[in-house]
Nucleic acid binder design. Structure first.
Lengths: 206, 206
DNA sequence: GTCTATAAGGAGATAGAC
DNA sequence: GTCTATCTCCTTATAGAC
């Protein structure tokens, strides 16, 4: 009884887990059904197609992320410290779930068009209120003040995202020292984070 | 006649192309056979399994890359200029084939163990002659001389590789300005390269 | 060497009974 | 809502004729 209530929600939970672990194409509806403990056809009953199930799982998450991106922009006054906070914030977000970074990159490569919506929302230039536009304004202000060298905000964001995400891709490969247990992993990521903060902040000096 | 000679080699060529374009799991032996213009069973006749075909295609390439990595280490005397050369060298290597970066990252995520061999060869600590060990020695020397801040060579390599590879992942997404034709793409990548050189070289100042 | 035929299994999706 | 049965298609791989 308890297990059978809200099968629709349980399908969403299980699908999220499996999609994160094995990607969209690596996960079958049969497998999701087995993990839920229901019949495979039930997934099609509730969600019609695997593609729609994917969207129903991840569209809300993507909305959430876009909203969260504002947070680290308000925390500090000093721009370089703010930048440090942004890097820590990204690390924190990806550390919440170690499957996140590989999942994002993999889906980005395999199904680029899936992210059009997300990219447009993130970069939207009509609205001055988006996180990116606020960040861009800050960067320009600092360049004018002469506190940092001339740089495009979008490049800076890409630098930070690339360095952050790749740390999580590389971490499970034991690129550091032999294989990683969970504590070593955490230590490795903290080390990478400090290195990236140093690189980015140092690299912006005029 | 001409088409039918050296079917084994033609399978290797076609497999390389398709694996690069659609990844290992995204490519079927049936598809390879169709592109070669031969029967699907012939692929298994020559290579027995899809997995072994994959290795026969890419193991030689990986050897080649490990050997090439030495080249940019010899070009310049000044370390920071050498670093610029290394970044240009990586960009040049990935620009040879735009499918390379997504392929590498995708296979890295989906089949991490496939790269153990490559990583071990690249980082091999027994031999002082590997590209990485030579680079590590140079970094330490520069730190001692005080020309750069204290940094781990492996972090520096990861920073450069992450920034370079991610530029190629992001480029086809039209992250820059609308959609990309081939000239725009090239311009975008050159811009990214200069940005990365500035970031890394600037970021190493003591 | 190259083919046909086929095994053995997995995928996503639908029809229709209950 | 949930099930069984089934369709259609595709996958890797093998046996055996030629």
């Amino acid at each position: 009884m308890e297990r059978n209530q809200n099968i629709e929600k349980r399908i969403l939970w299980v699908a999220e887990r499996l999609f994160l672990e094995k990607g969209f194409s690596g996960t079958s509806t049969t497998e999701i059904a087995k993990a839920v403990g229901c019949n495979q056809t039930l997934i099609h009953y509730y969600f019609r197609t695997k593609e729609k199930l994917f969207w129903d799982v991840f569209a809300p998450k993507m909305e959430q992320v876009v909203e969260y991106l504002d947070a680290p922009l308000d925390e500090e006054k000093d721009f370089l410290k703010k930048l440090g906070n942004i890097i820590e914030f990204y690390f924190g977000m990806l550390e919440l779930d170690e499957r996140l970074a590989p999942f994002i990159v993999n889906e980005l490569i395999m199904h680029p068009s899936r992210w059009d919506m997300f990219r447009r929302r993130f970069l939207r230039s009509e609205s001055r209120s988006s996180a990116f536009n606020r960040f861009e304004a800050m960067v320009k202000e600092e360049i004018d003040k002469g506190t940092i060298r001339n740089v495009e905000a979008i490049d800076l964001v890409l630098d930070i995202m690339s360095l952050t995400i790749s740390s999580f891709i590389v971490a499970p490969l034991g690129f550091a020292k032999g294989e990683c247990d969970s504590d070593e992993r955490r230590a490795y990521l903290t080390g990478r984070m400090e290195d990236i903060k140093a690189l980015v902040i140092n690299g912006l000096r005029p």
